[in-house]
Design a protein around this nucleic acid. Structure first.
Length: 559
DNA sequence: AAACGATGCCCCC
DNA sequence: TGGGGGCCCTCGTT
């Protein structure tokens, strides 16, 4: 039937409101003020509300438009598309779709709100039950293996106070962070575009971004152990770079795509990277499951490429054992973390294969003894192996924690606190938001991996974006976070008081968006670049979340 | 100002 | 094996 005919003969349309007892949100109430719509509105459904035509056949009836068309504007869940319930934010609290498995632990039968593993503000993470509990041998193993762990843990020191930040430093999201190994106040950062940032955060304004090193995602940065003025970079452009931090001069040690872009099936990307100082090697791994060795003296690829994960799957993480550097830990998209002996690297020759429920984002040996392993997998679980000399068949603990995969986010990676002598404190950003006094915030979680307990959740009312990248300083009580394009430095309240500082410094870089409603990044109306800034006092801490920070590039916050 | 799409994700059908 | 779609995302462009 021609549209013209339909339009002229179209009958009056009545919208039948949903009679559910559910309270509707304010936005929907606005929408429902429309009682009568024309034809366009019938097919053009607004705000995700599904419109059902109940008497479509009236269109085809011979009674030209006499019967009114009744439309039912049912509230429909935007997740499962079914009526009768809704999912989404109610204020700052997200309501799960009850038809889906729990968003947190991925088990059916409940939602995040009622999940037994839920991270609540005042309670800790509840560790998943141990798979091997109940056997007497476990207890003996546990006793033997834990003898070198201090019986009384020293108190954890949490860098929980925002000290300074660079907003819109990078032009794309942050992908990796690395502290300088000897200079305590230098932080390196990589972004999705492949740019490398060097920030002297103690001076706040001394920062540089090198943009010509890589053409896409800079996945990992490692310092040259024999010259900490140069760093290696592994990128999705398929190259390993070596860059002088002072000059920004760089060269490529290896290029896996010498013929350029020939389509996604052949383009090689480098993700995992690690240095083995003893052997003088840079180890990198690609998105097809292969490991490459590059000699740091000759700057050339050496040896054969070795298939270390399932062919065609991405290898995202490499880590050499800090005590026994010939032990290599790898992880990737084949749902495994694997332990290798570097002296005997060949396909299938791994010492251990550690299975996971999903893709493994990261796997790290513990930083001091090297005997523990901590992994982050996309099944929303952190896994801990208490000793690589003990039972490796299954992890000692699984800790349910929200760090879901999302294609627009840098993958979450739980990392050990290198300063914790008990090797139990780890940090990881949280994906799922929590309602903190009306604001949906994504905290950075500090977890005691020996118990699964949530030690601290660090957040700031002004930081509304997720912080997937977090790095703890090797010596200071400092943490760096990458959240979207911004970088934040956190310090411990006590140590900061000792230094006598009483203000925060926020630097806005690049052009400020006029539209963004983010607390950080969008509030600046001027388009001045990072070199020009002014300072201005601000409100007290309790009011910070509601205060717009004006037209300044530098914002000082009195504590 | 909303809508759209993004090499670079990953899972599942 | 390939294509489509995805629950709390993001940012630049149109």
């Amino acid at each position: 039937m021609p549209l013209q005919t339909r339009r002229t003969r179209f009958p009056r349309v009545v919208i039948e409101r949903d009679t559910d007892t559910e309270e509707s949100s304010s936005e929907e109430e606005e929408e429902e003020e429309t009682g009568v719509v024309d034809e366009e509105d019938v097919t053009d459904n607004e705000n995700g509300g599904k419109v059902e035509e109940k008497s479509l056949d009236a269109l085809h009836s011979k009674n030209k438009g006499k019967a009114p068309i009744t439309i039912s504007l049912k509230k429909v869940c935007k997740v499962c598309k079914k009526a009768g319930h809704e999912a989404g934010f109610k204020g700052a609290t997200y309501i799960d779709c009850p038809m889906k498995p729990c968003f947190l632990c991925k088990m059916p039968g409940h939602t995040t709100i009622t999940c037994p593993h839920r991270v609540a503000m005042e309670r800790g993470v509840i560790p998943a039950p141990r798979r091997n509990t109940g056997f007497p041998l476990d207890y003996i193993f546990e006793r033997q293996l834990r003898t070198n762990v201090p019986m009384i843990k020293p108190p954890f020191v949490i860098p929980d106070q925002l000290d300074c930040a660079v907003i819109r430093y990078h032009s794309r999201r942050i992908t990796c962070l690395e502290f300088h190994p000897t200079n305590n106040n230098i932080l390196l950062s990589g972004d999705k575009k492949g740019q490398l940032g060097v920030w002297h955060y103690s001076k706040v304004y001394e920062k540089t971004v090198y943009g010509n090193i890589h053409s896409c995602i800079l996945n990992n940065i490692r310092f040259n152990p024999t010259n900490d003025e140069t760093v290696y970079g592994a990128s999705s452009d398929g190259t390993v770079s070596s860059t002088d931090l002072e000059t920004g001069m760089s060269f490529s040690l290896m290029d896996l795509n010498p013929d350029g872009w020939q389509g996604p099936s052949s383009w090689r990307m480098l993700y995992g990277m690690e240095i083995n100082q003893e052997k003088g090697l840079v180890l990198v791994a690609d998105n097809f499951g292969y490991l490459y060795l590059v000699d740091m003296r000759s700057n050339n690829k050496v040896g054969e490429t070795i298939l270390i994960h399932k062919k065609g799957s991405k290898v995202v993480g490499l880590h050499c054992n800090p005590v026994q550097p010939e032990l290599l830990l790898s992880c990737g998209n084949d749902h495994f973390a694997r332990i290798w002996d570097i002296r005997r690297l060949e396909a299938g020759a791994s010492l251990y294969d550690l299975p996971h429920g999903r893709v493994v984002n990261s796997a790290y040996f513990s930083p001091r003894s090297g005997t523990k392993i901590l992994t982050t997998a996309q099944d929303n679980r952190l896994r801990v192996w208490d000793s690589i000399f003990g039972e490796m068949h299954s992890p000692s603990r699984e800790i349910v924690h929200s760090h879901d995969f999302n294609r627009h986010l840098t993958p979450f990676r739980a990392e050990w606190d290198p300063k914790d002598p008990s090797e139990s404190l780890a940090v990881i950003g949280r994906y799922i938001s929590e309602n903190y006094n009306g604001a949906a915030l994504h905290p950075i979680d500090f977890i005691d991996t020996s118990t699964g307990r949530l030690i601290a959740e660090v957040m700031e009312p002004n930081i509304t974006t997720i912080s997937p990248v977090n790095k703890l300083h090797p010596r200071d009580d400092v943490m760096a976070s990458g959240s979207s394009r911004s970088i934040f430095i956190w310090k411990n309240k006590k140590s900061e008081l000792l230094e006598g500082k009483d203000e925060k410094k926020i630097v806005h870089c690049g052009k400020a968006g006029k539209k963004s409603n983010k607390k950080f990044g969008g509030e600046s109306d001027d388009d001045s670049d990072a070199d020009t800034f002014s300072s201005k006092g601000k409100n007290s801490k309790s009011k910070r979340s509601e205060s717009k920070s004006s037209h300044t590039c530098l914002t000082k916050v009195k504590r």
